[in-house]
Design a protein around this nucleic acid. Structure first.
Lengths: 197, 197, 197, 197
DNA sequence: TATTAATCGAGACGGTACGTCAAGTCTTCTA
DNA sequence: TAGAAGACTTGACGTACCGTCTCGATTAATA
């Protein structure tokens, strides 16, 4: 709908699009969700305010687009041989992404926006889906190995683990040690024999 | 610290304090964190803008105070005889508080602000401490009954369970069924014998 | 210098300019310099506050502009045949302009501001230059007629006469009778023979 | 009414009175009429705002009091033997008082206020009366000496001379050279013989 | 090739909120 | 009581964004 119909008239400059989105990403990272000002986005992108508004009718839409853009690379599914250890590795990555701005990029800002902006929630959902996939793979592999109880619901596991990371990062604002992450995983008792020994 | 030292000068009118805080609470509930405008808070509280600024130097401080104020009564610790069932009940309450504004009061707004505002985070920490206490009690009681593994760390349990609720509410924006909450609890396998039967 | 260079961007609406200046003129006349409030000027002009501030960075600049605008038509140079009589006529006009607000327009307000605001002083200078010109013409004409001492310095005459009017109006706050004005003129003894008879 | 009736209760501290008036004088001198803020006067006087308001109901009254207080020493009547020269000396003093703030004290500020505040006008009237007296004396002495035309009206002379000084200082904002002052005086032709020689 | 229509920049416009400051009034404590 | 301190309402100050708009100047596809 945007790019396909060539129509008459001057076409939009794609550089402008990307300049805007870049600026949004930076500002979101640096100054958070509240610090996202259309006016400064335009200036920072070296673009006129009208050009921003031509694409995004308002702050929300801009945020929406930024969220849509926001798709951090799906992490390599780890394979250490141990289901628990694989999960810990995934959680470590997630915890890093949640930590202070400019480390984890705009994620905290988007999270902050989630309360009021459904698009932000969508972005987060996509993000969490991405994160969930390797988690599921890890569990499936464990199940194949016979490590993991076949009846186990991978989604519930993801809710609990991702939730714990989210909770401590967002609500309690703490860095999470790898040790703690490992204890979360062990609590779920995925590998019954591993500590019966 | 506030009221005891009379000092010279006219004392602050406590009605003004409460009028402001009430107004903040309402606005936060109705219009979210972004809709919290000093000017309108003042108007709504029937108070001059200067009186608001005398107490709270800026929006952040106002939010902070609102958060401090926001300490919903700690729920009755349930006692159904079953540890799992008690936990489910606590989670149901928590899930309700997280759902749509005006149901759960300003909590979602505060949560949204947590990303950018440490004070909001503090408020949440206090809130979560309050919630955590009955959870710990329930677990302790279970341990006393012999239901629960004595080695179990209650805090980790709370992280996982509260986190899962938070995660599904905030990130995925879903209402959470009681059934799902029960499955979270069961996953933790607190009462080993309960499903061995 | 203002209107010719179109430049990029939406051009300023000249109606806004004039609306503002009109409002300023009225308020200055009605409520004096101290009663000149940016906020009310904007409202009265039916214009946003930002539009006022875009043009005038602060009250002083607004005053300055109002002063610049303030250039009452240079009075007809009278020609009664008598130098003295011509001067008296000019002084009468000047005395009227100095009297109560809304009679003389913003002049008293500007005069009041002159002490603290150089721009007001500039406006007054321009104004007095305008007033001085007809005075000089009258004197020159008198000199041509042989009425007036050729050595006479017209500027000094203007200082003395205008000063006297100013003094009685501002410092003493009195209406000045035509008779008194005539006596001032006669004191200067411009037409030596006129009272030798 | 103020000082005489002792009445019941603690008497007013006269130091407070003078501290206030001093502060007013200084502020008027330094920051002009518009810069006269009750709040800062109080602070500067080391006095509570209420103590200021107890004495002066509002800014105008405070200004009024300051004006009342403002009574620069009546200058020594000069006596050089020459009427013209005496007048020049008086004008020099007056021109100095009119020049930049902190040189001439609060006079320029009061002058600025004269447009809107009758009390300021009163103060100026008193001031000009003070100035006028030596001028009249000088003229009378001249008349006694036979220097000056007996029919001359001293008041008119004062209007013209003081007015010229006022005019050039206030409206034109110029320092006035002694030479120019002398030319004003000579223009009035008080001593007909002095330049017939 | 000329037309045409949308783009781009710049920036004015009416709004709304921000956070500051002062004017006056009122209330309390201390001396 | 007076005096110091300071809370209170009111209202202007000057700043910063919002989202809309009007320009003049580019561009490319189309006629």
């Amino acid at each position: 709908m945007n790019s396909s119909c060539a129509g008459p008239g001057r076409p939009r400059d794609p550089e402008v699009d990307s300049a805007i989105l870049n600026a949004v990403g930076e500002m979101l990272t640096e100054r958070g969700f509240e610090g996202l000002a259309m006016e400064q986005v335009a200036e920072r992108a070296g673009v006129s305010k009208a050009s921003v508004y031509r694409r995004f009718a308002n702050r929300s839409e801009l945020l929406e687009a930024a969220c849509a853009e926001f798709a951090p690379a799906l992490p390599e599914t780890p394979d250490t041989g141990s289901t628990n250890e694989d999960l810990v590795e995934l959680l470590v990555l997630m915890a890093e992404a949640m930590s202070e701005p400019s480390a984890g990029g705009p994620l905290p800002a988007i999270l902050a926006a989630a309360g009021s902006h459904p698009e932000a929630r969508d972005a987060l959902r996509r993000f969490s889906d991405n994160r969930r996939k390797p988690m599921t793979e890890v569990i499936d592999r464990g199940r194949a190995r016979g490590d993991v109880d076949p009846a186990l619901d991978g989604e519930l596991v993801a809710d609990l683990l991702a939730g714990a990371v989210l909770f401590r990062s967002l609500v309690r604002g703490e860095e999470i040690s790898e040790k703690r992450l490992r204890r979360y995983v062990e609590m779920l008792d995925l590998e019954p024999d591993s500590h019966s020994s």
